[in-house]
Computed example of a mutant assay.
Amino acid sequence: MEAGDKELSEDTNHFLLYQGKPLNGIFVQTNPILLEVYETEYYKGVPHGRYTAKKEDGTVLEERNIRYGQKHGKQTSYFANGTLKQKSEFDNGIPIGEYIDYFENGQMATYQTFYDSGKPKVAKKWNRRGQIYLNQVFMESGESFGRPGSKLCDPIPDANINPK
């Protein structure tokens, strides 16, 4: 089904309907400004299955798995040039394992791990120069230890530059 189809509607619980019945199939939306196409599998009117976002030329921007409206399984996104932007994993909407976010040059930008409850266990963030500015470890109670973030110093000038 394409967005804008007159047979599509939504019920009071926000289930997607086709001809008055819960949608089973693939719902396709196109963003003409960003030149992107989004495809979402639906089952009984809710997102369930695979979600993909692509440029109109077919370049994959995001791949996500959904179980009854919740992120479930591996999630990945990519920059327009095809390099990995982010990877994570969910169990029925709860983050598990590792969440890693990258800069376009491939350097790690964010790294997180999680307790079984989905609460953060470790969080680290770097700037584009590779300097860490956040490094925390969390207890499951919420108490944290480490560097919660600070202002970084200006970079040291190149050795080739002579002050006058």
Rank of each mutant, 00 (worst) to 15 (best):
I132G: 03
T110W: 00
T110S: 04
N135D: 15
D57N: 15
K85H: 13
P163Y: 06
D116C: 11
K124L: 05
T40R: 08
Y102H: 09
I161W: 12
N127P: 00
N135M: 01
S88R: 13
V60A: 01
P120W: 03
L152W: 06
K124C: 07
G25A: 04
N135I: 06
I26Q: 05
K21C: 02
L16I: 11
F15Y: 09
R50A: 04
A123I: 09
D11L: 13
H14C: 03
I156E: 09
E39G: 02
P22I: 04
G93N: 06
T30P: 00
Y115F: 15
N127R: 09
F27V: 00
P32S: 13
A3W: 07
F145Y: 13
L61P: 09
L152D: 05
K124E: 09
E104A: 12
I96R: 15
G142S: 12
P47W: 04
P120V: 04
D154M: 08
E62T: 15
Q29P: 00
G118V: 12
L34D: 13
L84W: 00
D116L: 15
F90T: 06
R128N: 06
K74G: 08
F90S: 03
N13E: 14
W126H: 03
D11N: 15
D101E: 14
Q19K: 15
P155V: 08
F79R: 07
M108A: 05
P95K: 07
K21E: 09
L8K: 09
N13P: 02
G25R: 01
K71I: 00
Q107D: 14
Y38W: 14
I132C: 15
L23E: 01
F114W: 06
S9E: 14
N105W: 10
K119D: 12
Y18P: 00
D116Y: 07
T83I: 01
L23Q: 03
A109C: 01
E41K: 10
H72Q: 03
N105I: 13
Q136R: 15
G58Q: 14
S88K: 14
T113I: 05
Q136L: 14
K151A: 01
W126P: 01
K124A: 05
N162W: 09
R147W: 05
W126Y: 07
L134R: 11
I161K: 11
